Structure formats: structure tokens, C-alpha cells
Amino acid sequence: MSRRELREQIFRILFRVEFHDPKEYEEQRELFFALEEGEASEKDISYVNDKAEDIIAHLPEIDEAINAVAKGWKTSRMGKVDLTIIRLAVYELKYEEDIPTGVAINEAVELAKKYGTDTSSSFVNGVLAKLA
């Protein structure tokens, strides 16, 4: 899988976290990968799983950073798609040294165009620009 495809898979698995109890993460992860069977290599599955778990472990710090710059918007008020995309991008900005800032923001905007509303891409771009 390409980096973009891997990022999209991470987004999709993180999105599930918003709707399920954290105790159900293991089951949700297994269901997710069962649906993706045959489309991803073991290496890709491992990468997606490891990255998703690391992002989940850093959610308190990520949400704190988002809340600090999103004037008038707190993570509790944001749409789940936008929030998940922003969380993924903030993780890449803060914890992934090999991903340039512009790439992380651009990829987040592209995900917002694909999965969000008409205004998602500009909202995501605005929040991430303040963080960068």
C-alpha cells in the first residue's frame, strides 16, 4: 500500500474509536482487518495497527494541542470526521519526524475532501495551519 492508502486505513480505524467503548477496540480492530482481508499485507496491517494504537495512546496530548488553537471550537464540538482527520495530522506533525509539515497538512485536507462535508477541508486546513 502507498503512504496515502495506509494513512486512509489509519483514519478509518481511528474513526471507529469515536463510536465504541475503548474496551471494544481490540474487537473493532479485528473486525476492521477482517473486512480488509486480502487487500493488505501483514506488514501493512502491522503498520496501521501500530500507528493507530500509538495515536490513541497520545490522544490526551493531541486533543490538548487542538483545543489550544481551535478558537471557538473544542474537540467535543467538532464533527467526528474532521476531528479524526485533525488528530491523525497532529500526530504526524508532532511525533513523525520523517513526514514534512506540508505533506501532513495536505494529506489531511485530501482526507477531509473525501470523507468530510463541503467545509471540512477548509476547517481542517485552518486548524492545522495554526498548529504548524
Rank of each mutant, 00 (worst) to 15 (best):
M78T: 01
K51V: 11
V69N: 02
I62K: 01
E18Y: 05
Q28A: 09
I55N: 01
E53G: 05
V81K: 10
G38W: 03
I105P: 00
E30S: 12
M78S: 05
I45V: 15
N67R: 02
A68C: 02
F33L: 07
R12M: 15
K94A: 13
E42P: 01
F19G: 14
D98M: 09
E24N: 12
Y95L: 08
S121Y: 09
T119Q: 11
H58E: 15
E42D: 12
E8R: 14
R16P: 08
A57F: 11
L111H: 05
R7N: 13
K43Y: 10
A89E: 09
N106Y: 12
Q28K: 14
N67S: 05
K74F: 00
E8Y: 02
P22L: 07
E61V: 10
V81E: 14
D118M: 11
S46F: 10
V17I: 13
W73T: 03
L128W: 03
F32P: 01
I45S: 01
D44G: 07
P60N: 04
T119A: 10
S2D: 15
F15R: 15
L128Q: 06
R4G: 06
I55K: 01
A57P: 03
S76I: 13
M78V: 02
V103F: 06
L128C: 08
K114Q: 14
L88Q: 13
N49E: 12
E36C: 06
D82N: 07
A57L: 14
D82T: 00
K114S: 10
A112W: 01
A104T: 02
D98W: 10
R7S: 14
L59W: 06
N49Q: 11
